[in-house]
Design a binder for these strands. Structure first.
Lengths: 236, 236
DNA sequence: ACCACCCGAGTGGTCGGACCACTATGGCTA
DNA sequence: TAGCCATAGTGGTCCGACCACTCGGGTGGT
């Protein structure tokens, strides 16, 4: 008879759903400050410990942000906030799943590059060129990797879809690429990578979407094929 | 001088990173059982409360799975486990971001459908047809939605990339589509949806990737355009 | 009147312990 | 031998205390 006790799942899970629902229904706006942990616990009729677990869960999901000594706030719920967790997938995937992930990236990256070719502004293009030259001016793998990431990041942003850019960012996270690169660049793929980047840049300058799509697909596809061959060799 | 105390961030965050690292380094295999919460807390030198928060965080990320009374286990780390959080993004996004998300889905869904046209087996095709007829045989929006989801799910699976299928699943989660459909289907889009599904099915039967890509892109694009017009009207 | 400083109330972060709910295993009983 | 069941061990929940940090208002000096 107690309508307040459907009792499904753990209390923490229920608290997570309650808060998610509040945000979904618009009762909590982005950037807004939540009641204190202690108050929230009382409101939902659970202990502060359980409430903290719920808050921690929503924090790692990029929905909430806890500031020590200040309070708990709803994030802006932008692509960057919510898709940060996507990096975890890339970091923990392995073997065949890594290849699949790279295939997804190839599809999105080629489309994003094609869109960028049609929409990129001269300012953005200048930024892309900056990373391209910086990338070619050093031999430090760390620096190269950083500019490589920024190179593609800038292009994805120029495509005009922040959500897609955020996903691609996750699919190219530092640890993910570092893992793949470790063996890849030992096969003299440096020069090839530079040629591919140059081809992408040319297509952008020419504002040729089809050429850009092809160049980007080939670029990611190279790594993808190499990885595919590596996975096959993993007999263990 | 104390090398055991780099002291970066909260202890809970450190615990999360430690466990993630253990899995990344292969010290924890998929399916393996972890030490008890109490033991883990001692090992990492933190309290059980903090350790529980870390475990809860990794649980919602789909990395760990806690079974009451039994223990904590590493998931299989498959696409489905890790990409479940993708649904949260779809559920909490709104306005322009929803359009961007649908654009991503259009890109992936069209490619997946094209791949499926080339690779789908007769068994899988029969399954697709089952959902297609079931979807056309009822007027119950709930049932239609369920079969619609399964229809696209089956196609994505036939494309041979489980990771992509899992992402598309998240991008088509129940609450996400229910929200969009609420107003969409009131404009007599039912008949159109059926025609589009039929077109996709025809392309699959004909094993025509290009036709399949076009049909899928048009299908998602329809909803996307409608949503785009709705967002523009939201003056608030 | 202004400003820099300081302090205390309020907040999230951490801890330890207690107890509850559930699972699984082994021995005991029929 | 088959089935039951007591029990140890596990995750789930709660409590209360204290720590670390933020922030705003009061205080003192200029």
């Amino acid at each position: 008879m107690d309508e307040t006790a459907p009792q499904k799942g753990t209390v923490t899970q229920r608290a997570i759903d309650r808060i998610k629902a509040m945000i979904g229904e618009g009762r909590l706006e982005p950037g807004q400050r939540l009641p204190t942990e202690r108050d929230l616990a009382v409101q939902l009729g659970i202990s502060r410990s359980s409430m903290r677990e719920a808050i921690r869960a929503l924090t790692v999901l990029g929905v909430l942000e806890a500031r020590h000594g200040s309070g708990i706030y709803v994030t802006q719920l932008e692509a960057g906030d919510l898709l940060e967790t996507f990096g975890v997938v890339a970091d923990l995937s392995r073997g065949p799943q890594l290849v699949e992930l790279l295939e997804v990236r190839r599809i999105l990256e080629s489309t994003a590059t094609a869109l960028a070719a049609a929409r990129i502004t001269s300012d953005q293009l200048a930024e892309v060129e900056k990373h391209l030259t910086a990338m070619n001016a050093t031999e430090d793998p760390e620096v190269i990797l950083a500019h490589d990431l920024a190179f593609h990041r800038e292009i994805a942003t120029a495509a005009g879809n922040e959500t897609m850019a955020a996903i691609l960012d996750g699919l190219s996270s530092r640890t993910f690429r570092a893992r793949v690169w470790r063996g890849y660049q030992e096969e003299g793929a440096f020069a090839r990578t530079r040629r591919e980047h140059a081809a992408i840049h040319r297509a952008l300058v020419a504002r040729d979407p089809e050429a850009a799509r092809a160049a980007a697909a080939a670029h990611v596809g190279e790594v993808e094929q190499w990885l595919r061959s590596q996975v096959v060799d993993e007999v263990r």
